[in-house]
Nucleic acid binder design. Structure first.
Lengths: 124, 124
DNA sequence: CAACGATATGAACGAGTATTCATAACGAAC
DNA sequence: GTTCGTTATGAATACTCGTTCATATCGTTG
């Protein structure tokens, strides 16, 4: 066992993961889906978005499809063919969703910050 | 795509995980480690604890070992042999840790409740 | 000192997930 | 009507992580 400092205490970080799903856990809106929608709203391309995020198109497409099935409404309006090959446009409901999700994230960030400060004192 | 109700909106659940780790993510104190320590403090046995939680001894042992390496101090005082075959006793620092972790969770759960209610309204 | 039961740990196996591959459809543009 | 780039999707392959298996150590107790 390697001790990191005389106190035995050093860089500890509090992490969290947040996602929305059905009661059974099927379908989900998590960070991946959020990031995808965010990128797609800029590029109008699912492929570009998946490349940006470094995940396979296959997975990106499948994840968003599952998310739509779970939510019961569309997140993207997609077209094939045309000059650009095709496009994916984020729907209005998806925009509302990502805005609400962002607010949720902000709250989490805050609360994590607070809770962690308390935690540090206790553990000292 | 199966729509769940006329609103296209239905049972969406908020899930989240909280855990402590190094900046690189190595070693971690999360729910598993917390539960293990909690059970061990009652049974003085890592084996009994892992059985209770329905996880393999191999994993329980490895997880706590990694956690100790990450923290830089011991969570368990373990002995082999003897009448009972051996024992695992939770250290004082580990007790402080789980108490702080419990407080962290409590604080967080409260806050999250509110944040999620807000979220539901926005998404409506 | 043989037996028992928990700790200790590497290695093989298996389930779940993501990536890669392969192939097709589509539609504007040249 | 051939080309191009993106969406669409099944199938095979690769990876990650936990379980299972196999073995060893240790110390009290009969």
């Amino acid at each position: 066992m390697k001790t990191k400092d005389k106190d035995g205490y050093h860089k500890v970080f509090l992490n969290y993961k947040l996602w929305l799903s059905s009661i059974t856990g099927d379908g989900a809106i998590g960070d991946t889906e959020y990031q995808l929608l965010k990128h797609i709203s800029k590029s109008q391309s699912l492929k570009a978005a998946s490349d940006d995020l470094g995940i396979s198109y296959r997975k990106a497409w499948g994840d968003l499809k599952k998310a739509e099935e779970f939510l019961g409404y569309q997140l993207l309006d997609k077209t094939r063919g045309g000059k650009s090959g095709g496009t994916s446009v984020v729907t209005n409901r998806a925009i509302k969703l990502i805005e609400a999700y962002e607010a949720l994230q902000r709250t989490f960030d805050e609360k994590v910050e607070d809770a962690f400060n308390e935690f540090r004192d206790k553990i000292k």
